[in-house]
Each structure stands twice: as C-alpha cells, then as structure tokens.
Design a protein around this nucleic acid. Sequence first.
DNA 1: CGATAGGTTGAAAGTGATCAAACGCTGTGG
DNA 2: CCACAGCGTTTGATCACTTTCAACCTATCG
Lengths: 232, 232
Amino acid sequence: MQHRDLGLTPVHESQDDLCVARVPVFAKLPRATQLEIAGYARPRKLRAGEALYRQGDAIAQLFVVHTGTSKLTQSRADGEWLVRTVGPGEVVGEHAFLTGARPDDTVTALEDSQMCVFDHRDLGRIISAHPQVAIEMLRAVSTRLQRAERRITALAGTDAVTRLSDYLLGSPFARDGETAVVTLPMTKREVASYLGMTPESFSRALARLTKSGAIEVDGPRIRLLDPAKLTS
Amino acid sequence: MQHRDLGLTPVHESQDDLCVARVPVFAKLPRATQLEIAGYARPRKLRAGEALYRQGDAIAQLFVVHTGTSKLTQSRADGEWLVRTVGPGEVVGEHAFLTGARPDDTVTALEDSQMCVFDHRDLGRIISAHPQVAIEMLRAVSTRLQRAERRITALAGTDAVTRLSDYLLGSPFARDGETAVVTLPMTKREVASYLGMTPESFSRALARLTKSGAIEVDGPRIRLLDPAKLTS
DNA sequence: CGATAGGTTGAAAGTGATCAAACGCTGTGG
DNA sequence: CCACAGCGTTTGATCACTTTCAACCTATCG
C-alpha cells in the first residue's frame, strides 16, 4: 500500500492535498494531519458516463468526491432507481469501506470527475491516529441517514405534485434578480426516478405547477416564480 | 445472560455495565474500556407508551437501547409516519448527539424499556480515547443508511402486495416446525404506515396473500406457508 | 353492558402507471 | 444542406391500483 514516510511530504502529493483540504470531512483538521491523511489517498479520475463501481463489485474503498457530480443508482427487478446524487465534498462507498461488504448500488459519473480513494485496510490506522476524522464521518453519514429517513416518509405519504414541490424547495438554486432558479442535475427522466414517479408523471406535475403560476420551465432550468404556492 | 460478576466490578456499576457490555457498539471493547465508558452513561427507564424525546426537543443525547422496543415516528402535514422500530442493542438520537441539532423525529416506547444515555459533551472525549467506538458507530449508522436507501427504492417502485411480501421475508421470524412465523412488532395500522400504505390496503394485501395460500394470519402472527409465493 | 380502538370489508372516487403517438432537438450521412 | 434516426420529453386515452368514506365486526375495559 502507498503511504510511507509520514514526516516528509513529497511534492507529488499536492493534488491529493487539495482533495483532502477541500472536503468537509477533513477540512477542520490541522494542516499537518491533512498532509498525513493525504498520504493514504490515491487519486482517481472518471470521465462522464464512466462507472466508479457497480453493484456487487468486490471493492472496499471510500471515495471522497473532489470535482464533478455522480449518480448513485440501485437496480431492482422493476428497473433502475436513482438513490441520490453526490457532488464535491461528499462521500460514497463508506458502507463497503467500513464493513468490507459488497456495495448494492452503482455509482456513475455524470460529468468528468476526480475522487480521492481510501482503502479499507487503512481505515483503522487513520481513525486511531485521528479520531476527529471519525466524528466528521459520523456527522456526514448521520446527516445522510436523516435525509434518507425524511425522504422515506415523503415517498410514503405525499402525492406527485407535493413531492416535486418539496424537491424544488429543497434544491440548491441560483438567484436571478428576485426569483430563484433551480437547475435539474440530470435528465428529467432520472429526477423522476429520484422522486419515485414515472417521467410522464413528472412532466405532468411540472405542467400543473406551471399552469398554477408557481414555476416556469425552460429546459433543465426551473424558475420559482411563487414559492408560496409550492408550500401548500 | 452476559454480565456475570467479574469480581472487581463495583456494585453500583452493575446496571450501566450490563448496558454497555450487551450492545454491539461496545461489545468488542476490552472489559476495562467498557467500564470506563459505562462511567459516562446514565440509565433511563421508560414505561410503555412514554416518549423518550419528541420532534424539536432540545436534547443532544445518544440513547442505546438495553431492553424493550420503541418506535421512531415522523409527524408531517399529512399525518404521522413510522420511520422504523428500534430494539435492544440499537442506537437512537445519534444525529442530535453528533451535531447538536434538534431531532426531527419522536421516539416512543412500545414496551417498558431501559436505555443508556450519553451526553453530547462527552462525545469527543469518548471517541478520542477509544476510536474503536467510532468505527463501530460508523458501521451501525452506515448499515442503517443502507437499509433506508434500499427501502426508498422499494417504496418508489413496487405495489402493496410486493412491499408486504418483501417486508415479511425480511423480518425476523420464529420457527414452528417447518414454517417460519413472523410476529408483527406493532399494530397493523403502524406496520401499514411503515410500508407506506393505509391500514385498509394493508389488510387487503394480507387477505390476498392468504387467499393465494402464501401465508396464514392469526392476530399479529403470520405463518409463511409458502415463501416461494412471496418472492414473485 | 356500552364505549372505544383495532381490524375487516364493500363501493366509489382519484391518482398515477401504462401504452401509444407526436414533438423537438442533435448528430450523422447522403 | 437536407433527410433521417435516436433520444428525451410531452401529451392524450385508458387502465389498474390505492385511497377514501362508510359500515360492520370483534375484542378489551371501565
């Protein structure tokens, strides 16, 4: 495994270093610790459309996203479902990394991406030496769990238009003058899958919100003309 | 069962000790470490129906369930939804514990229960001193996350009978001769909520599976007569 | 007992899925 | 430059399903 000489950081680490420093999980650590941790990381590049790993692969690695966004999907008898998307600073593969189990999801890059890769066998060493890392990872995973559990109750209890409204209100947005503009991260087909509906239903839900004057759709860009109408 | 008297154990520790030793998160630690951690824990007893905490409470504590089962629910505009149940050895409140944020769920005891309580302010100390605890907690949270994400795809994609079938096949069961018997952990109304359907639909789904000969229902007990029929 | 709560069953209504067709955009090859 | 193919998206019609509303049933409990 890589990572020798903890004291003397070689020049070629500069890229890993960037990765480690920019990511919330490691951001608060002292510089020296970041450099040490960078020693465990291997860089990995992905091109748009390329898979990071697939359901059932024998990998046991933690991936920290540096640049680019990817999608995490699960394949079932009834088709492929989008579980979530991951962007810079987020972490994937932690279940395999922590337990050694094979992943039951597939991660595919939506854009050209860069990641930091950590191996299962280094886990114990990193955490023993820097417990703060564990706390940050716990925070990250626990936050995702919270979001997932909230999404469960939303999927179980609300109709298509409400799910779409909640999704729009919860999405990152750009400002355009007074109004917020949400840009869909993927094709509408895939966003529909994320929201647990068919592309047709998604299209109809958008149409209904447009007719009510709540939003305005322009390709992947959605202007929230009247957020109050989305709260109903 | 565990917790025999190891001689040096102070009497007043016996209860906390029991708690710490029986729980997966702490089970693998050396005895001395367990005792030390037990020093941070406070016991807490709940009677059936009593709430451990409520959505929005200003608590920042980790609860480790020692005995009894509880339910974790989320209240939304459209009613109350069951998120999951927790039993001995499981952990609740970790999001509040880790981040200091207020919980957005409510935990209610289904039976008389005992818990160990850890305070947010002790978190750093425990984990710095015993990083192994952090790894175990990460494993636990990450496993729950995995389950939650799988449940999301199930809720999104399948019909009522399939969801019920999958639920039965995934539930812990007792053996009765050849056949497995699943006992519902709560009222059917609440299990229905867990599966994202109304009590009526739940009842009808049970009826259909009964008519097809796959199961036999006797109050909260469900005999899986023909598991193969549930796999369809 | 009557009352309450959980559970079941029936009929009606609503919603999303499915199937099918058409639109618009993009890239390709004649 | 244009015709065409392919894909994502939209729209319409139909169908299957779950929800809703209502009645009824059955235990438990004061």
